[in-house]
Simulated assay, not measured.
Amino acid sequence: MTNTTQSFQWGDIALSQVAYVDGIPHATRQAIGEWLEYADSQKAVDNLLDRNPHIEHYSTPLNLRAVDGKMRDVSVYHPIGFLLIVMESGQPKALACKVAVAEFVWHFAGPHGADTKERNAYLKEIERLTDRIAGARNAMVYRQLVRMIEYYCHLAAWPQPDLTLRTTEIDQLPLPLGEQTPALPGKGV
């Protein structure tokens, strides 16, 4: 753990001040408020925290070097604390984040369509199809198997597997334009 902050980016989340605690990025109130686009970022987040003191459970006090070079005690927030602060905000970015979380929960935990027996059948079919991909030598057959896997993943509300890990030869099929084949140990680039 260092006494300085750094910027952090993950997808659409860009934070100006993050300190790593046990390898986990913890954001300052200032950075969270800036990301939420508050005019007075620190004060706005302080107000949210005053109304929701339970969020402090997800903070860690650190002694960090400020812009002026002086050391200051600062609370930094674990990603769960960051998300809880965002959930309490009414800013446009917060609303978009709330929708994304709700869609994520619906997709992976929502009761939409398949019961457990059907879902297990879909998952078995996904497994069977991924086994077939390992032996596919024809690009048309390979693409059809991929489409079938996508279909069953959708029915089961399950994430699509990384099919590149299922093939026996990484270079058996040409990659679409713009992608490069990763170098393998013992193989030329």
Rank of each mutant, 00 (worst) to 15 (best):
K70N: 13
W158S: 10
R143Q: 07
A183I: 02
A31Y: 03
Q172N: 15
Q17E: 15
L36G: 00
D22Y: 08
H78W: 10
Y122W: 10
L83T: 14
V18N: 05
L36H: 03
R128G: 04
L163W: 14
F108L: 11
G188T: 10
T4D: 08
K98A: 06
E127A: 12
A157V: 01
D40Q: 11
Q160T: 14
Y122M: 15
V101C: 09
Q144I: 03
H154Y: 12
P182W: 04
V86C: 00
R72Q: 12
E118S: 09
E150S: 14
Q180M: 12
H57M: 12
E37C: 05
K70V: 08
V18L: 06
P185Y: 13
F104H: 15
A136I: 03
V189I: 07
N120I: 04
T2L: 05
P25L: 02
T28C: 00
M71D: 14
I80K: 15
N63F: 12
K93V: 02
P92V: 08
L129A: 00
M71N: 04
P92Q: 14
I170D: 15
K43Y: 04
Q42W: 08
Q42R: 13
I126N: 12
G90V: 02
G90C: 01
E127L: 09
D12W: 13
L123K: 15
M71P: 00
W158A: 06
A109M: 09
V101T: 08
Y38E: 00
E88P: 06
A66F: 14
P92T: 06
A136L: 13
D68Q: 04
V21Y: 13
L64H: 11
D12R: 13
P176Q: 10
K93E: 04
K93L: 05
V105D: 09
V105T: 08
G113T: 05
P182I: 07
K117N: 15
H54P: 03
H57Q: 08
D73K: 07
R166T: 15
R51G: 00
T5Q: 00
R119D: 06
A14P: 02
N120A: 11
V146F: 05
R147D: 11
T164S: 15
D46M: 07
Q172P: 01
D46K: 09
L155C: 13
G23W: 09
E118L: 07
I24E: 03
I80C: 05
H54L: 12
L175P: 00
I149K: 04
P159I: 02
E179W: 11
P79S: 06
G178P: 06
L64F: 01
A157S: 14
L163T: 13
V105C: 05
R72E: 03
R137A: 09
T167S: 14
A136G: 11
K70C: 03
L36E: 02
I13D: 07
L95C: 01
P79K: 01
G90S: 12
